[in-house]
Simulated scan of single mutants.
Amino acid sequence: MVSILNTIDTGHEDMIHCAEVDYYGLRLATCSSDNSVKIFDIKNGAQSLAADLKGHGGPVWQCCWAHPRFGNILATCSYDRKVIIWREQNDWIKWYEYSNHESSVNSVAFAPPEFGLILACGSSDGSISILTCNTESGQWDYKKISNAHTIGCNAVNFCPSTVPEPAFDQRGVGTKGSYGVKRLVSGGCDNLVKIWKEDGDRWVEENRLEAHSDWVRDVAWAPSVGLPKTQLASCSQDRRVIIWSSDDLVNWSSTVLHTFDDVLWNVSWSLTGNILAVSGGDNKVSLWRENNEGQWSMISEDASAPTSTNALSEQRTL
Rank of each mutant, 00 (worst) to 15 (best):
L119Y: 04
L119G: 09
L119E: 05
L119K: 04
A120F: 12
G122A: 11
G122P: 08
G122M: 06
S123Q: 06
S124H: 05
S124N: 06
S124C: 04
S124F: 07
D125N: 11
D125M: 06
G126P: 02
S127M: 09
S127L: 09
S127C: 10
S127H: 13
S127Y: 08
I128W: 06
I128V: 15
S129T: 02
I130Y: 07
I130S: 12
I130C: 12
L131T: 04
L131H: 02
T132W: 02
T132Q: 15
T132P: 03
C133Y: 04
N134Y: 04
N134R: 03
T135L: 04
S137Q: 12
G138V: 11
G138C: 10
G138K: 03
Q139W: 02
Q139M: 04
W140A: 06
W140D: 14
Y142G: 05
K143L: 11
K143N: 15
K144F: 06
I145L: 04
S146L: 14
S146K: 15
S146C: 12
N147Q: 09
N147T: 12
N147L: 11
A148H: 12
A148V: 14
H149E: 01
T150M: 11
I151M: 15
I151P: 01
G152I: 13
C153W: 05
N154C: 15
N154D: 03
N154M: 12
V156S: 09
V156Y: 13
V156M: 14
N157K: 08
N157G: 10
F158N: 02
F158S: 01
C159V: 03
C159A: 08
P160T: 10
P160K: 13
P160M: 10
S161T: 09
S161Y: 13
S161V: 11
T162D: 13
V163D: 03
V163W: 09
E165C: 09
P166G: 11
P166D: 13
P166L: 11
D169C: 08
D169M: 06
Q170W: 03
Q170M: 08
Q170H: 08
R171P: 01
R171D: 15
G172Y: 14
G172A: 07
G172S: 05
V173Y: 10
G174D: 01
G174V: 01
G174I: 01
T175A: 13
K176W: 02
K176L: 10
S178G: 07
S178W: 01
S178E: 12
Y179L: 15
G180T: 14
V181H: 05
V181R: 10
K182F: 13
K182Y: 02
R183E: 07
L184F: 08
V185M: 00
V185I: 08
S186Q: 06
S186R: 09
G187L: 05
G187D: 02
G187S: 08
G188V: 13
C189A: 10
N191D: 14
V193W: 01
K194N: 03
K194Q: 05
I195P: 00
I195A: 00
I195H: 00
W196F: 08
W196S: 07
K197M: 04
K197L: 02
K197A: 04
E198S: 09
E198L: 14
D199P: 01
D199N: 14
G200W: 10
D201R: 14
D201V: 07
D201K: 14
W203Y: 11
V204K: 08
E205V: 03
E206P: 00
E206V: 01
E206G: 00
